[in-house]
């Protein structure tokens, strides 16, 4: 049992958990404030949109692809919701629903292009990134506040935690999304097909997995999750801005990789992505607590972590997949 837990699949995840605990533990030793649940609650709230987005990204990477359009999707969805509520009298929830549908459709469309024309995912989603950012600008150039009683209630909602902390509505939606992601990834046939396609595309096709349909659905799912991330972002900040979430695609990819998902696809866990997102939040918080360090250290430390995990993966896959390729 012990041996199988630390198998090739779970080793990166174990390392992720270790890094997370070490960072949090270090924070607790260094700063009194870290011992409070307030920090935990804030971590979950502030990183909710990132983690939700990263869940969708996890599916894409598991299937052996990449989605660079998620940051722009967040901005686009925010602007869309703001304009729908302000100018068209939509209830924010109705606007959110429209945004989710459009997000899924756009994601699916990118998946279809990738699948039908056999074009590399990064360049198609790059075009998607341009397109969505441009659409956001096109709808609205300025920062627009989203003022509606529902949004106020959403931002004010909190469940107290033991200690001084509390769980916000954003955090709850995020936790629900994580749970949903885990169920889809591990307990549905679709989820298992995603792993199969990422593990070995040609073999998966031979074994009867509907590779094309799975690919399209994976990008649709990523569109859905990033749109959901955008909804949370918009409700949480109660505003929208077409330049919002620039570079979030990179943070999301970093969360997935630090979370132990193999960039080549086929191996990984949604729970790992959750922890990977938290690690980024903890690093940010630690740097903020320190006061003497500047914010750019976040990027450098995350880059360093990314490097460490990628090299670790590389060494692991060499010993692991090597067996098969040597055949």
């Amino acid at each position: 049992m012990f041996k199988s837990f630390f198998s090739e699949r779970t080793l990166p995840l174990a390392a992720t958990i270790l890094v997370c605990l070490a960072l949090y533990g270090w924070g607790m030793i260094q700063y009194r404030g870290f011992r409070d649940t307030l920090v935990l609650g804030n971590l979950l709230t502030d990183n909710a949109f990132l983690i939700i987005t990263a869940i969708g990204m996890t599916f894409v990477i598991l299937a052996g692809g990449i989605d660079l359009s998620v940051g722009s999707m967040i901005a686009f969805v925010g602007v869309l919701i703001a304009v729908l509520t302000r100018d068209f009298g939509f209830h924010p929830l109705a606007a959110a629903f429209v945004a989710l549908v459009i997000g899924s459709l756009l994601g699916g469309a990118m998946g279809w292009l990738i699948q039908a024309f056999d074009i590399q995912p990064f360049i198609i989603t790059l075009a998607g990134m341009f397109f969505l950012r441009g659409m956001a600008f096109l709808i609205n150039l300025d920062s627009v506040p989203i003022s509606h009683p529902f949004v106020d209630a959403f931002a004010a909602f909190r469940i107290p935690l033991p200690g001084k902390g509390w769980l916000s509505a954003s955090a709850l939606v995020m936790l629900a999304a994580v749970a949903g992601g885990i169920v889809i990834a591990h307990f549905t046939r679709f989820g298992r097909n995603v792993y199969a396609v990422g593990g070995d595309r040609a073999s998966a096709a031979l074994m009867g997995v509907p590779v094309g349909r799975t690919t399209v659905r994976v990008y649709a799912l990523s569109g859905f999750f990033s749109a959901l991330g955008g909804v949370i972002y918009a409700f949480y900040t109660a505003s929208s801005y077409p330049l919002a979430a620039v570079g979030v695609e990179l943070d999301a990819i970093a969360a997935v990789v630090i979370g132990g998902t193999l960039l080549a696809g086929g191996i990984g866990f949604i729970a790992g992505t959750f922890i990977g997102g938290l690690i980024q939040g903890i690093i940010q918080t630690l740097i903020a607590f320190d006061g003497s360090l500047n914010s750019w250290w976040t990027k450098i430390v995350i880059g360093g972590l990314l490097f460490t995990f990628i090299v670790m993966q590389r060494l692991l896959t060499r010993s692991f997949v090597g067996l098969r390729k040597a055949a």
């Binding site: 990179l250 960039l263 450098i300 880059g303 990628i310």
Partner: peptide, 27 residues
């Protein structure tokens, strides 16, 4: 030499690079 896919390998510097630049200019 490490055999990492180019997209991913250059992604590392893409993420960390702007941080390094900010460090050099002190933000």
């Amino acid at each position: 030499f490490l055999g990492i896919q180019p997209i991913i390998a250059t992604l590392i510097l893409m993420v960390a690079g702007r941080g390094i630049a900010q460090m050099i200019t002190d933000g």
